[in-house]
Simulated scan of single mutants.
Amino acid sequence: MDREDEQLLRRRVYGADHDDPDPGPLPYRTYAELVGGPLDGLLLDITGWRAEEVDDGVALSTELVRWPGGRALYDPRPGEPRSPGPGVSRRFYHSGDTP
């Protein structure tokens, strides 16, 4: 596997610049994996978020929703375990879109 193949296998982080030569996760940060919807497969940096903030879910800006300039809603599933520390600590699931 060459360097280009390795880059394709690395996940992108939501909000990373499209021109960023290394838009993947950093080893000392904590992420939520976005599952389903328009941002499926991206990682959201949740480093430093309080437990209440993580449990509330997010509304993320994207042009890929039903309404241009709207937001995609992602929420954790109640009771789904989360891993402590850096890396992917939990999943957020697409629950809808909003203008």
Rank of each mutant, 00 (worst) to 15 (best):
D56E: 15
L8H: 13
A72H: 12
Y93M: 01
A72L: 10
D97V: 06
D55M: 05
G96H: 02
G96D: 06
G85M: 04
R77W: 03
D75T: 01
G48L: 06
P76K: 05
T47D: 07
R11F: 12
G57V: 04
T47L: 05
G57H: 02
L60M: 05
E4Y: 12
D45R: 05
S61P: 13
W49V: 01
G96P: 08
E4Q: 13
T30I: 06
L64W: 12
A51Q: 13
V35Q: 07
P84E: 10
R3K: 14
P84D: 10
P21W: 12
R11S: 13
T62K: 03
L44I: 00
R91M: 04
T98I: 10
Y74V: 00
E52T: 11
Y31W: 03
G69L: 09
E53H: 05
D5E: 14
T30H: 06
V58G: 03
M1R: 14
V58F: 04
D56P: 01
G96V: 04
D2T: 08
G41R: 08
P76C: 01
R91L: 06
R82F: 00
A32N: 00
V58L: 02
P78F: 02
P23N: 12
A51G: 08
G70W: 06
L34E: 09
V65K: 09
P84C: 06
P38K: 09
L9N: 15
G87H: 03
V65D: 07
H18W: 15
L42H: 12
P25C: 01
I46K: 02
R82D: 00
R77Y: 00
L64A: 14
A51C: 08
D40T: 14
F92D: 00
Y93C: 01
I46C: 06
